[in-house]
């Protein structure tokens, strides 16, 4: 890629001159040399995004073993199977989807409300930089570090959380604690991310409006609800969409904290797809699941985007 960067200048034609001469050849050469700048990105993009999207669809239309390769054309049958509840694949897919949606429902509201309230408190308090740093800190940690840490904190015997509460809560092994555990670890790690975005929204608040509200005798809660929140409504709409997407992609927390258990109750769709492709070795069927999941997620994002945008404006 670096070589390409160095070869570009020799062919370059100066823009100013090419305009004036107006010759067709010069325009084409000018456009071509401009296009060369995008070529390294386009190569990477086509190889690692474009081609996989097409190839994944082809895989989903075939029976495919990761070691043996294609085992015959399946047509739409692997998609149809996912709608036949008598099959194991369908049962796993819809249970996985149900679990994923459960997590979205229990995580997105928290990831919206908590960062918004905290961001506003920081915005109205001294020590802004210090507090922002503290709340942002866990965001830079890897998901495996976070899950190994929280698995230790949430041990039933000798875990710090149970010690603190003087309780024997079976956090990682029984419901509803298992979901609560995954939710806590996720919120702890990602709330700082949303907080930074909402905080940036609050800093756009006109100071005069806040002063006027204070003069009118509006209390802190009232000012927050009637003046600050409407100001950041577009940011909040954005956070709903992006948090839903990231919660929909839940994988590592379930794999590492609960192993998908108890039973399969915290096994999200991503884990079903992972198991179907790399453990059960049904890559074609797994690709069909992944495609269906991507379509469902795109549909949800689309609906959310339009609903929140209408409300916001």
């Amino acid at each position: 890629m670096a070589l390409r960067v160095q070869t570009a200048p020799e062919k370059v034609v100066q823009r100013g001159k090419s305009r004036r001469s107006g010759s067709m050849v010069r325009i084409i050469v000018d456009q071509f040399t401009s296009f060369l700048f995008v070529v390294p990105f386009l190569i990477a993009f086509c190889l690692f995004v474009g081609y996989p999207i097409v190839f994944g669809f082809i895989v989903s239309l075939n029976h495919w073993n990761p070691l043996a390769g294609p085992l015959g054309f399946a047509g739409w049958s692997q998609y149809a199977t996912l709608f036949n509840m008598n099959t194991l694949a369908a049962q796993q897919f819809w249970l996985g989807l149900k679990n994923t949606v459960t997590f979205v429902i229990i995580s997105v509201p928290v990831l919206l409300v908590l960062p918004t309230v905290l961001a506003y408190l920081i915005y109205r308090s001294p020590f802004k930089t210090l507090f922002r740093s503290i709340y942002f800190l866990p965001t830079v940690l890897s998901v495996t570090a976070v899950t190994s840490l929280w698995t230790w904190l949430l041990q039933t015997q000798g875990g710090a959380v149970n010690n603190f509460l003087h309780a024997h809560i079976p956090w990682l092994v029984e419901q509803p604690w298992a979901w609560l555990s995954i939710d806590m670890a996720t919120v702890w790690r990602t709330l700082g991310f949303n907080l930074i975005i909402v905080y940036a929204g609050f800093t756009q608040l006109p100071q005069s409006t806040l002063e006027a509200a204070a003069l009118d005798g509006a209390g802190a809660v009232r000012t927050f609800l009637s003046i600050a929140l409407p100001q950041v409504r577009h940011v909040l709409a954005f956070i709903i969409v992006t948090s839903t997407i990231s919660s929909f992609n839940l994988f590592a927390q379930s794999l590492l904290m609960t192993g998908g258990g108890p039973g399969s109750s915290t096994e999200p769709l991503t884990m079903v797809i992972y198991n179907q492709s790399f453990n059960a070795m049904h890559m074609g069927s797994a690709a069909a699941m992944a495609y269906l999941m991507a379509i469902i997620l795109a549909a949800i994002s689309f609906v959310q985007y339009h609903l929140t945008r209408e409300r916001a404006s």
């Binding site: 296009f35 999207i53 495919w64 797994a286 999941m293 991507a294």
Partner: peptide, 27 residues
């Protein structure tokens, strides 16, 4: 083609990784 490329770039931001995982692995 500048506009087309830009729209493709923006659209690709919403593709979930799980949809790319299996074909990327096979590739």
């Amino acid at each position: 083609g500048r506009r087309v490329i830009f729209y493709i770039v923006v659209a690709s931001l919403v593709v979930p990784f799980i949809a790319l995982l299996i074909p990327l692995y096979l590739e």
